[in-house]
């Protein structure tokens, strides 16, 4: 892992999904961003983004290539993680309607409903006020998006849309139903990079 004075190294889980957009957003938020597909690559990062994609595909590939257990171990040990859309589903302790055999990493005490906002025809953009993000509302791009049905006592709700929870944080784990990586507004990624910096400082004490 990188020296404290240098930029944090943040991986993007690159099994499937919009990896490129997250790498660009992280770099714009002053992190060193790199794709992660193997356990040895995971070991070298200070934090990890789980991108949007198909949650069933990402989950299957993570099991198949021996990443699921190392990922769970790192998340349990407090590595900062940020999941968007499919990534939010991966970070949920429980999925309301999982496909057979669909596993999650867990890390956030919440129950998530997949495709809760509907199919592609119902996908939408809307302004979202996110706690911890200064200034104007974030442009929320919701694509076949999940929402959070319920959260545990330790989980902080950061944003809602239309009465549904769409952004949460528990400790070092952050999740959004929407895709800031598609907007060119890097403030949510900036929030996550700050979480990674804070964690590095805390670990070095």
């Amino acid at each position: 892992m990188a020296e404290l004075s240098s930029a944090p190294v943040i991986g993007v889980l690159a099994l499937q999904g919009d990896v490129r957009e997250h790498l660009i957003a992280l770099a714009a938020a002053d992190a060193v961003a790199r794709p992660v597909r193997r356990p040895e690559e995971l070991a070298e990062v200070d934090g990890l983004v789980i991108p949007g994609g198909e949650s069933t595909t990402i989950s299957k590939l993570a099991v198949l290539f021996g990443l699921m257990e190392p990922l769970r171990a790192r998340v349990r040990a407090g590595m900062p993680v940020y999941g968007t859309c499919a990534g939010m589903i991966m970070l949920a302790d429980k999925i309301l309607d999982p496909r057979s055999g669909q596993e999650t990493l867990g890390g956030i005490d919440m129950i998530v409903r997949r495709n809760a906002f509907g199919r592609q025809n119902e996908s939408f953009e809307a302004a979202v006020d996110v706690k911890g993000v200064e200034g104007d509302a974030v442009e929320g791009v919701f694509i076949r998006a999940p929402w959070v049905e319920s959260v545990g006592a330790e989980t902080e709700v950061l944003a809602e849309h239309d009465g549904h929870i769409v952004a949460v944080r528990q400790g070092n784990a952050l999740a959004t139903s929407f895709h800031p990586e598609l907007t060119g507004d890097h403030r949510v990624h900036g929030l996550f990079v700050d979480m990674v910096r804070g964690n590095r400082t805390a670990e070095s004490l």
């Binding site: 099994l15 994609g53 198909e54 598609l182």
Partner: peptide, 13 residues
Amino acid sequence: RVKRGMAEQLKGG
């Protein structure tokens, strides 16, 4: 953005 963004989610698949 919503239409093109949907295809972005399919990448690598």
